[in-house]
């Protein structure tokens, strides 16, 4: 395997609060190869956005990295002084956030924002940056880019704004883009357009993407690999087809089953009873054990690490030969 572009090793993030430390990320390990699209899925509060924020060095205070490390092209970036991190952000790691209106400065024209980004990171002559800004607007599919370059963010619709944000994230030609819910704020017909633009441009430039979303549909058609997060941990990781069609972890199985399908109509959706534990009440052992249909004794005491499971890697004792009780049922996604 090629050297990973991004390597997150045993990353832990904690939030000191008055009532004690909250562990928001608990030994999260992920890696991205150059040009790869890694989907990160999970429910609200699972830690997927926090993982992205840690990589770009923008953890919301008072959050802090309490363990592990993040390597970008072999170089540690989790402990850099803010000034050095700022030069990496934008130049080597681009970011796309959910709400395009807050990601753009309302007081500057979109052209100026693009030009400024390129001047900061690429050291190009003045005329060249403007020409490139127009070029980028065209590539993300903004009609009449030459006229629109001097327009302000409020003059664009939601879908067009998100295209501008994509142009802004890609214009310094970073090797990695963190896209946190890039299509969640958009209508379905616009979502498809934006995903198409993001996919096309990142493939063209060989940019790796960490795509954070709760929309499994978007993941299914965009990502190469998927990491499933639950209660601050990665509980399953594998190729997208296997995660969607033959997931191993009982949580992933339940998650896939709970998505209503366009193809078939079922009387009742499969549901996982209960809710994800709060950060101050994560149970010992496997964090999913109180809701798990396949739970057994070991799950309540010992934390499982990622191990080879059906066609993926899952953090679940069901797949550890040593712990397997005689007749333990292996979950099936299409039961």
């Amino acid at each position: 395997m090629k050297e990973p572009l991004l390597d997150i090793q045993e990353l832990s993030v904690e939030f000191p609060t008055r009532r004690g430390l909250l562990k928001a990320l608990d030994r999260v390990s992920l890696s991205l190869a150059p040009g790869e699209v890694l989907g990160v899925v999970g429910e609200s509060g699972a830690g997927k956005s926090l993982t992205g924020a840690a990589v770009i060095g923008l953890l919301p205070p008072p959050g802090r990295i309490s363990g592990g490390q993040i390597l970008l092209q072999g170089e540690r970036i989790d402990n850099l002084p803010p000034e050095r991190m700022r030069r990496i952000r934008g130049r080597r790691i681009g970011a796309i956030f959910q709400d395009p209106l807050t990601a753009l400065n309302p007081l500057y024209s979109v052209g100026r924002q693009l030009v400024e980004t390129m001047q900061t990171h690429l050291r190009l002559p003045d005329g060249e940056t403007r020409r490139r800004a127009i070029d980028w607007l065209q590539r993300v599919g903004i009609p009449a880019a030459e006229q629109r370059i001097d327009a302000y963010p409020h003059e664009f619709s939601g879908g067009m704004r998100q295209r501008v944000v994509i142009a802004l994230a890609l214009c310094a030609e970073p090797r990695l883009v963190i896209a946190d819910e890039p299509t969640t704020a958009l209508d379905v017909s616009i979502q498809a357009q934006v995903i198409e633009v993001l996919k096309g441009l990142t493939r063209e430039h060989g940019t790796a993407v960490m795509l954070i979303t709760h929309d499994m549909g978007v993941i299914a058609e965009t990502a190469d690999r998927v990491a499933v997060m639950y209660a601050g941990r990665v509980i399953e990781v594998g190729p997208v087809r296997e995660i969607v069609q033959t997931p191993s972890h009982p949580y992933t199985v339940g998650l896939m089953g709970s998505i209503p399908s366009l193809e078939t109509r079922v009387e009742r959706l499969r549901q996982i009873d209960g809710a994800m534990p709060r950060l101050n009440a994560i149970p010992p052992g496997c964090p999913f054990n109180p809701r798990c249909p396949n739970v057994f004794e070991r799950c309540r005491v010992e934390r499982p690490e990622l191990m080879p499971a059906l066609a993926t890697q899952a953090a679940c004792w069901l797949y550890d030969a040593a712990s397997l009780p005689a007749a333990s049922p292996v979950p099936s996604a299409h039961a």
Partner: peptide, 10 residues
């Protein structure tokens, strides 16, 4: 326009 789980990568 809807992304569907069945059509991986399409």
């Amino acid at each position: 326009a809807i992304p569907d789980l069945k059509v991986t990568g399409s």
